[in-house]
Simulated scan of single mutants.
Amino acid sequence: MTTHFLHGRGAVYPGFLDAHVHLALSDPGQLLTGGIARVLDLGGWLPDGLRTSMPDLAYAHQFVTAPGGYPSRADWAQPGWSCPVASPADAVSAVDLQVAAGASVLKITLNSAAGPVLGAEALAALVGRAHELRLPVVAHAEGAGQAERAFTAGVDAFAHTPFSERLGDGLVTAMAARMTWISTLDIHGWGSPTVAFEIASDNLRRFHCNGGRVLYGTDLGNGPLPIGVNHREIVALLGAGLTPDDVLAALCSSAPLGLTTPDSRVTFIPGERPQGPGAFADWLVTARALTRPELEVLA
């Protein structure tokens, strides 16, 4: 991660990434002024005109799930957002459909708390076909045993830090060796921590301590989340054992999950980086995403 300083004006970082958003459920026009230069949309149609207003974008297109599975029956999901898969043959077609729509990742859901989940053969076929096409697989894993099922099937990343149950130390260590976890801690209570928040924070702390790769992500569109860098998410990451440098790495990660790192925007934070975690979080939320010409004018 390369940092530049503008003669005492502030710090310039590679464009900050929110690795879990749903742009159709939020206002993407405010992301740039909130410091977010890159996004990974993990399910749902993209708003019209988005490619011109937020070009640093990768997306999953549909949620791939079991027939009747999450989120096909959720009131917030539009018709057609879910792609049902009942068999290995369906799985191949589903992956090919997402690729044809321009997907950079495959998003699958394994949410036994909200409906049926993919069977073992269909799940294996989805992961196998995606990897054959060099498409990373991101899973929403919710419900007892679903995180372990996803890991065993070869899923590359979790859309959320596992929050349904405390994962065993051995399993967390094995996951840390080859998986990426997207944080999304703040969705569990939005500032009023819940049991799920405590479980997720504990799982993330052990995953990070074992060298697991953590990406900053908020699940923007899910409840009262601020648009731009989320102060509560930063504080939660620090509380889970990440240092300020670790948090910056999670925000600036290069080429994760099919999202390249273009040079079109950087993230600028005015002022000097402060000492202390609380002041660090306050400083981060003053970030702005700027184009290179905008940065030159500022300098």
Rank of each mutant, 00 (worst) to 15 (best):
A141D: 13
A200P: 08
P270I: 05
P88G: 14
S82F: 07
E148G: 08
L284T: 14
R73D: 03
V137L: 09
G170F: 03
S112V: 02
A139D: 00
S26Q: 09
A103Q: 04
G211E: 06
A289Q: 10
D18G: 04
L106E: 02
N203F: 14
G170P: 09
P84W: 15
R73W: 04
R232D: 13
L32S: 13
D41S: 12
G44T: 12
D246M: 04
W190S: 00
T261A: 11
R292E: 05
P136M: 02
C209K: 07
G44F: 11
P274W: 11
T184I: 01
D246G: 13
P226K: 10
V12P: 13
S82L: 10
G10C: 11
H4R: 05
L238E: 04
S93Q: 13
A124Y: 03
G211T: 08
R292M: 13
V214F: 04
S112M: 01
W76Y: 10
I199N: 00
F63E: 08
S87A: 11
D56A: 13
V214R: 05
G35F: 00
L204P: 03
P244D: 05
L110W: 05
G115K: 05
P293C: 08
S72D: 14
V195A: 07
L110N: 05
P55Y: 01
R273K: 14
G271M: 06
V297Q: 08
G29V: 07
A236F: 00
W81T: 10
D263C: 14
A147L: 07
D245S: 08
W190Q: 02
W45S: 14
R134V: 04
G43H: 06
P88V: 15
H131V: 11
A289I: 12
W45P: 14
D282F: 11
N203E: 05
E294H: 07
S93R: 15
A74R: 12
L17K: 04
E296D: 08
T291E: 03
A91Q: 13
L123K: 09
A249T: 04
V137W: 01
V229E: 08
G145A: 09
D41R: 12
V297N: 08
L133M: 15
A24K: 02
S93I: 14
L284P: 02
G221H: 11
F163S: 10
L259T: 02
N203K: 01
W181T: 12
L248H: 01
S264K: 01
E121V: 07
Y59Q: 07
V229S: 04
H208G: 01
A120M: 09
T152S: 14
P293Y: 09
P256Q: 01
G143D: 11
V39Y: 05
P193F: 00
G170W: 01
H61W: 01
H160T: 07
T260K: 00
E198T: 09
D169Q: 13
E198D: 08
S254K: 12
L123Y: 15
Q30M: 07
P226S: 04
L257F: 00
P244A: 11
R38P: 14
L251K: 01
A176R: 00
L185A: 01
A94L: 14
R273T: 14
L167P: 09
V105W: 00
A240N: 05
